[in-house]
Design a binder for these strands. Structure first.
Lengths: 192, 192
DNA sequence: CCCGTTTATTAACTTAAGGTAACGATTTCA
DNA sequence: TGAAATCGTTACCTTAAGTTAATAAACGGG
């Protein structure tokens, strides 16, 4: 399972045997069953997660309703806001499927950055890229109707539809499950 | 005007005289009049912008309509997506007010990072923080109605309302100018 | 200072999303 | 395996957003 990670990193920088060993040394690999809560609202945590296989989601509990706002699948990760603020978490993180993930904390990052400074560069570059992508994504959300967003999601993240319950997808699209259900019926009719 | 920048940076790291001199050496400070286009859709550009004073916005031209998706004010900045992809820009960037900005490109960053590695750490930390904040912001957007978003904006970014034309704010809120106008009337009535 | 453009508001109509509730179908797990 | 919870769909009604259009106010360049 380390290979999944190293294959990914190799797209950006070359890692020596020593560097790979240092990463494995950190003992960051975990498996988690579907439904497992990695982080609860209100908790303090210093762990970030990176998905090697499977799917995790962030969600809020608002008026007793789960509102899923993000899905992270293969080669995507999240450092929860609370890790940076040191305050209680605003949201929950849960596994949508049985997953293989990396769990890292700032101390581990610091250790790796100190040994191998080029990791820090990698993280900076990945972060900067992610900011720009996130912004594009948000832009698209703002400038689209729920229906367009739904169609867009099918195009941009094919397969996610199949992996995720519909009511979770609905809040991800910024609508209610009922609206998503209607929307789908509307589209099916149009297609005919 | 350098002082505005150095005051900001001093909240994160200490800069020596040499380091400050190296930054000034880069000749990154610019002023731009309201309405100035810093980047046009379709253009190639390698410049990122950081606002010291004033306000800039990103917008898309969709069916001849301007859709404003983000505002950047004091101590906020943007590295356009096209700088990272080397492809034509998806959006425009324009000054909303007369502004004092920093314009930087990857070569300048590389030069500074080489001279003073701690800058790279600063950028990584700021980037990681921004990712988490952006995500929270997006989450809030998805889980709120236009009305809640409007009220939230007043709270979170007071003053922006006064600085920015309403039709630009409308698309920023993900609605039409007409809807924003109605929404405001509705709220004014409620308050009474 | 004036005229054209941009901006904000309002109105009437259409469309779709929210709220509530009910219904089976599926999944979970004790 | 059987009861309970979860999930997706449908229906009905309400509410608000989109669309189009008209008008008035504010702004800005010559």
């Amino acid at each position: 399972m380390e290979d999944i990670l190293f294959d990914f990193i190799s797209k950006y920088i070359h890692l020596s045997k020593e560097e790979k060993a240092a990463i494995i040394e950190l003992d960051i690999f975990r498996t988690a069953k579907k439904g497992t809560l990695l982080l609860r609202e209100g908790e303090h945590s210093s762990y970030g997660y990176f998905v090697l296989k499977g799917c995790i989601r962030t969600f809020y509990l608002i008026d007793g309703e789960e509102k899923t706002t993000a899905f992270y699948t293969e080669m995507e990760g999240i450092t929860p806001h609370c890790v940076l603020t040191l305050k209680p978490s605003e949201y929950h993180i849960a596994c949508v499927e049985d997953s293989i993930i990396i769990a890292y904390n700032p101390a581990m990052e610091a250790a790796i950055f100190e040994q191998f400074p080029k990791f820090e560069r990698l993280c900076r570059l990945l972060s900067e890229e992610l900011i720009a992508k996130q912004q594009l994504n948000f832009d698209e959300f703002k400038t689209s109707s729920p229906e367009q967003r739904y169609l867009n999601l099918i195009e941009k993240r094919p397969g996610l539809m199949q992996r995720v319950p519909q009511h979770q997808l609905a809040s991800f699209l910024g609508i209610t499950p009922q609206s998503l259900s209607r929307l789908r019926k509307r589209l099916a009719k149009k297609k005919k």
